[in-house]
Design a protein around this nucleic acid. Structure first.
Lengths: 190, 190
DNA sequence: ACTCCACTATATCGCGCCGATACATCAGTG
DNA sequence: CACTGATGTATCGGCGCGATATAGTGGAGT
């Protein structure tokens, strides 16, 4: 997931680790921070895999970003062709991880770069997933027999409300997507 | 967190891994499953630490649970005195992890075993945490300048609604706790 | 001018947990 | 009798977290 996010963010501009992390928390709204403890190792992995490269000092001083910064620092990374390709592949590969809380959040953060049909698949998959959770919680909360712990029930009540809300939210998004798709077709084909 | 949950569950009755996992998903309402890939290794860890012990075959056949089950299987675990002690310690130690989504959920699942004052600390800590998230998302969503990606904004809108709802939910819980605490005092001291 | 602090910036280590996978038993259904 | 689905235990590779170390930068306060 972090790999996906980094590759996505680097499409905007070359960045260094600290910056990536900040953009990431902004994007995901503190839902997910991705600590440095995973960020830097992941950058190394991507580097070794050739999906990103470290910007050379010359390029850095070409921009007025020439702060060599003491003796050693500020490693700026940029995408390679392979990196872009990989990101496109990951966008198109809609697996079950794209439907869970975290995966869905990250995918949606890059929806502007995602083809409309893929967006739909993700939205609908997520909806099904949340509906399932909702039904599970529904029956748990409704379980008339007072055999359920009171605090557990409260926990499930909150979860149920969240699920219901998210399904409504997804329905609106899906409706909007459909409307726009229709407009695109009407605008092109008449 | 898993360690905490296992120790808590074993207070109810001795159990084997599969059973623990089921009770766990019930408790947390699919918010958290704790896969076998973490469950079994954790059980081993607890075993080695002496916090739980494996029930002997004799005990097993004492109950009519005598299903030796082919040649090898069904390891039933029970708490030791050290295990109970450790759980009590963990209950009393309210750190920041008790306020994040997952930690809070697990703690609340064992609130019936938690002293009232600790319950309050957790509830109030969680409220502060969620209020912070809410404020962050509020300003992000309100950021009038249309510089924010449309899908990102939707994501934050949902997060904001969730936070608002949870704060209200927490307020109700806290009010109930306070009312009950007052009743307890009035009932004891008049 | 000097100190203090918050922010920017990179990096490593241990370990908790996940997903995939493998394997075996048992009970009910067709 | 075979199939399927639930029960049951276990391991492996790898991702990500929290804690921790290190250090340069810029501004506020005294």
């Amino acid at each position: 997931m972090l790999e996906f996010a980094i590759l996505g963010l680097l499409h905007e501009a070359p960045m260094h680790g600290y910056e990536l992390r900040k953009r990431l928390s902004d994007l995901l709204g503190t839902l997910r921070a991705f600590s440095y403890g995973s960020l830097y190792p992941t950058l190394r992995r991507l580097l070794k895999a050739g999906l990103i490269v470290e910007e050379t000092p010359e390029e850095a001083s070409a921009r007025n970003d020439a702060r060599t910064w003491g003796k050693r620092a500020k490693r700026v990374y940029e995408l390679t062709a392979e990196g872009k390709e990989r990101f496109a592949d990951m966008l198109a590969d809609v697996g079950p991880q794209a439907f869970d809380d975290e995966g869905f959040g990250v995918h949606m953060a890059f929806f502007s770069r995602t083809p409309a049909d893929i967006r739909m698949r993700i939205l609908e998959g997520r909806r099904r997933r949340v509906e399932e959770r909702r039904e599970g919680l529904r029956s748990s909360v409704a379980r008339a027999g007072e055999q359920i712990d009171r605090y557990t029930r409260e926990l499930h009540r909150l979860g149920l409300e969240h699920s219901e809300r998210e399904v409504r939210w997804l329905n609106e998004l899906i409706a909007t997507e459909q409307r726009e798709q229709k407009e695109r077709q009407d605008g092109v084909e008449p």
